[in-house]
C-alpha cells in the first residue's frame, strides 16, 4: 500500500547531495540529510520516518544504504554505513562512522555505537547494554504503518511541503 505513495518532505529540511529517496518516507522539519563528498550517495528505501533535528551525514565514499520502515527519532545522528529495515534509532542516539545497523534493532535514547549491531539487537540504558530481542516486528510494523499514515496526514497541514 505504501509503495505507491510519494514521500512527504517538509520544506524546512536540508537535503543536499546525491540522495535517492524511495516512496512513503516522512522527513520532518529541521532534518538534515547530507552527502559530503561528490560521487558518494545515500539510498533511502521506503516508509522511513525522520523526526525533527535528525542528522544523517554521509561523509565517506560509496553508498550509504537506509532500508525500509526505520524510525530516526528526535535529535539522533546517523553517520553509519548502513541500516537494515524496521530499526529504531531513539532520541539523541548516535551512530558513529563505521557502524552498520541490522534489521529490527533498537538503539536506545542517548546510546552510542561505533560497532555493528546485528539483527534484533537492543542497546539500552546508561551503560549501553546490548541484548537480543525476541519480539517479532510484526506488531511494530503495524504501529509503524499507522504512525506513517498519521504523519502524512498531519504534517502538510502545518508545514510547507517540497513539491518536487
Amino acid at each position: 500500500m505504501a509503495a505507491t505513495l510519494p514521500s512527504v518532505i517538509c520544506d524546512d529540511s536540508i537535503i543536499e547531495g546525491d540522495i535517492i529517496v524511495g516512496s512513503a518516507n516522512v522527513v520532518s522539519p529541521k532534518c538534515s540529510i547530507t552527502v559530503a563528498k561528490p560521487g558518494s550517495r545515500i539510498v533511502i528505501g521506503d516508509g522511513n520516518v525522520f523526526e525533527e533535528n535528525v542528522k544523517i551525514v554521509h561523509s565517506g565514499d560509496g553508498e550509504m544504504k537506509i532500508g525500509d520502515n526505520n524510525i530516526f527519532q528526535v535529535g539522533c545522528v546517523f553517520e553509519g554505513l548502513s541500516i537494515g529495515s524496521g530499526s529504531t534509532i531513539e532520541a539523541g542516539a548516535n551512530v558513529l562512522g563505521t557502524a552498520r545497523i541490522g534489521s529490527n534493532c533498537v538503539l536506545g535514547a542517548k546510546c552510542t555505537t561505533s560497532t555493528a549491531l546485528p539483527d534484533n539487537t537492543v542497546v539500552f540504558g546508561t551503560a549501553h547494554i546490548r541484548r537480543v530481542q525476541t519480539r517479532s516486528n510484526r506488531l511494530q510494523a503495524n504501529l509503524h504503518a499507522r504512525h506513517l499514515e498519521y504523519l502524512r496526514e498531519v504534517l502538510p497541514k502545518y508545514h510547507h511541503m517540497r513539491s518536487d
Binding site: 533498537v106 536506545g108 537492543v122 539500552f124 540504558g125 547494554i129 541484548r131 530481542q133 525476541t134 519480539r135
Partner: peptide, 12 residues
C-alpha cells in the same frame, strides 16, 4: 507485559 527500554517482554 513489555518493557519500553530494553524490549523485554513476558512472552519470553
Amino acid at each position: 507485559l513489555t518493557c519500553g527500554a530494553c524490549r523485554w517482554d513476558s512472552l519470553e
